[in-house]
Simulated assay, not measured.
Amino acid sequence: MMPTTETQEAIFTRHRARVFAVAYRLVGTVSDAEDVVQETWLRWSGADTGNVRSPEAWLVTTASRLGIDHLRRLRARREAYVGPWLPEPIVEPANAEPVPTPEERIALADEVSIALLHMLERLAPEERTAFLLHEAFDYDYGDLAAILGKSQAACRQIVSRARRRVSDERPRFEASPADHARLASAFADALMKEDPQALLASLREDAILYTDGGGRVTAALNPIYGADRITRFFFGITRKFPEPYVIDGIRINGRPGFTLSLGRQISSIVSFDIRDGLIANVYIMRNPDKIARAAQALGRPLLGA
C-alpha cells in the first residue's frame, strides 16, 4: 500500500520527472508532454490511491495510456502538417553542465536523440509506447501487458515489429560523442568559411536534410536527398541574407548541434544523425512554435519575434 505519511502531491512531485520523460518520448514536443503530465496529475489527485502499491507504476501506466490517446489525436494534425514534421528540441548551451530542469535531465538521460524521435513517428501509437517502455525504460512484457491491455505474447510481437521498423533506419553502432562533436564542428566551420568541399566531406553521399517550418516560416517542403543537393541548399540560403549567419554551438537533446542566427536573433536550430563516421541526416528546426522554448533557454530572441 502507498505510505500514508506522504501526500499525493509530494508523491507526484517525486515521480514527475519520470512521467515527463515517458510523455516527451511518446509525443515529441514539450508542450504536448506537459499536457500529458498535467492530465496525469489531475487523474492522480482525484483517484483513491490508498491501495496503490507502486505510485510510479500507476503514474507511468496512466501517462502511457494518455500518451497513446494524445498520439491518436495528433496523427491527423501531423498528416496535414506543412512540410516535414520534426520533434521539438530540448537545448542547452554547449558548455552547460546540468540541463535546466529535472524533467529535462531525466528526458535526456537515455537515448532520446532527434533522430530516434523522428524515426519513431513511423510507428503506430501502441507500437511506439511498447517500444519506448521496453527499450528505454526496461519495462518487461508483463508490465506492457498491464499498460496496453494485451497479452504478453501480443506485446512481445508489438515490440519485435517496432524494433525491426526502427532498426531498418537506425545505425548498427551509435556515433561516439567525440565523433558527433567533430562532425558538427566541421559542418559549422564549412558554413562559416563558405567552403562547399569541406561541407561535402562531412556528409554521406546519401545524406538527407529535413527542414521543419510548419507553414509558419520559409522552409523546404520536402526532404532534400544527397550531399551535393544539401550543400547547394545551405549555401543558397545563406547567400540570400544581407549579413552573414552567426553560428553558435549548443547541445540538442544531449548532442552537439548549433543555432543559425542573424545577429542575436535565432532563425534555426540544426542537429545531426551520424552514421559510419559521416553525417547521415541533417535536421533544421525553424517552426517558431518549436524553437521558442529553446531560444528562451539560451537567453536569445527569435528572428522576427
Rank of each mutant, 00 (worst) to 15 (best):
A227M: 05
V91L: 08
F137N: 10
F12M: 10
T4N: 12
I68Q: 05
D206S: 04
N253Y: 02
I158G: 07
R105Q: 11
G304A: 05
A107Q: 00
R161A: 15
S176Y: 08
D206Q: 02
A305F: 01
A21M: 04
A145S: 15
T218W: 02
L86H: 02
E243S: 11
A115N: 03
A33Y: 01
R293K: 13
A181S: 10
R53Y: 08
F131W: 15
S45E: 06
T40P: 08
P288K: 00
A17G: 11
E39Y: 06
R182S: 12
A80D: 14
P55G: 07
P87D: 03
T4E: 13
I90M: 12
P3Y: 06
R229D: 13
A280P: 02
T49C: 03
T101P: 02
T7C: 09
A184S: 15
A178Y: 07
A107G: 00
P242R: 07
A175K: 05
S271Q: 00
P98K: 06
G28H: 06
H70Q: 15
N95W: 05
E174S: 12
H118Q: 11
P102I: 03
N222Y: 10
T211R: 06
S261Q: 11
G249H: 09
N253M: 08
Y141F: 14
Y245H: 11
R204A: 07
D206R: 00
L74G: 06
G257L: 10
D289G: 13
N95C: 01
S268K: 07
I266H: 07
T218A: 13
D289W: 07
V112M: 01
D138K: 13
N51E: 13
A23Y: 03
R239F: 07
L42F: 10
